[in-house]
């Protein structure tokens, strides 16, 4: 998916700030990598456009992974990716001070009331999180706790779930004997999982490898039926016309 997202002015300001911020030198590599991944997602595309660098290219590989991970975390929710970027920038001393605003001509004291209370866009230097300005007092907004990630990242099923096509290619190069129609312990083939989770590019790649579309899962569903139930129309279309 290419990035159609246009980052805000605040983002560019923050990026400019960070590019020559002295505070950045004290920042951990993890944070730098996260910033890198977010920046790439916001300015290039939501996943790296090259294959994953070899294990000997430490830096390149770490950067690639950071980019890929940011893409997976935020997917098409790039607004959130930007908010996260701004949040890190703010923690490193950046302050959002739009250059577009002319210096005040008004009398002191009235300035504060010029805040546009009806402007619903959130303040950009603290874009995310937290509750109510009351230090989180009140009830809590909760959602289902996400499952632990990457438990079977090193199996073809785990890769199908992740949607990481480059990873699949690497895996198949290293394990050419792997049967792509194999069922996991729950009775799903990699194609079932990719279709169910909506990993379109993975579906295309699996089809290219010649996987069997007609395998049924434990509930008697084929891959196309799973895609249909899950509302992944693009995948349904691909499976109906595998040659296109």
């Amino acid at each position: 998916m290419s990035s159609e997202y246009t980052p805000s002015l605040a983002f560019h300001n923050a990026a400019a700030y960070l590019s020559n911020a002295s505070s950045l030198s004290k920042v951990s590599n993890d944070t730098k990598l996260e910033l890198y991944g977010l920046f790439k997602c916001l300015t290039v595309s939501s996943s790296p456009n090259s294959s994953r660098p070899s294990i000997f290219d430490f830096t390149g590989r770490a950067k690639w992974d950071a980019w890929s991970s940011a893409g997976k975390t935020f997917g098409n929710r790039l607004v959130d990716a930007e908010a996260r970027y701004l949040e890190i920038a703010a923690s490193l001393g950046w302050r959002d001070q739009p250059i577009a605003t002319p210096p005040s001509l008004g009398k002191k004291g009235e300035e504060e009331e010029e805040i546009d209370w009806d402007d619903e866009s959130p303040p950009q230097n603290r874009g995310t999180g937290a509750g109510g300005g009351g230090g989180g007092m009140g009830a809590t907004v909760s959602s289902v706790a996400p499952p632990p990630l990457g438990e079977d990242a090193d199996t073809v099923h785990g890769i199908a779930l992740s949607g990481d096509v480059a990873e699949l290619k690497g895996f198949l190069d290293a394990h050419p004997e792997v049967d792509l129609n194999e069922r996991d312990e729950f009775g799903y083939t990699p194609l079932h999982l990719a279709c169910d989770r909506g990993n379109t590019i993975m579906v295309q790649e699996l089809l290219r490898k010649g996987v069997d579309q007609n395998v049924k899962d434990a509930d008697e569903f084929t891959a196309i039926e799973l895609a249909r139930v899950a509302g992944h129309e693009d995948i349904v279309a691909i499976l109906e016309k595998p040659d296109s």
Partner: peptide, 14 residues
């Protein structure tokens, strides 16, 4: 409705 409690990654607000 514009300013009250949100979840930790600002996906939902009461």
């Amino acid at each position: 409705s514009l300013n009250y409690v949100e979840d930790h990654d600002a996906s939902f607000r009461f």
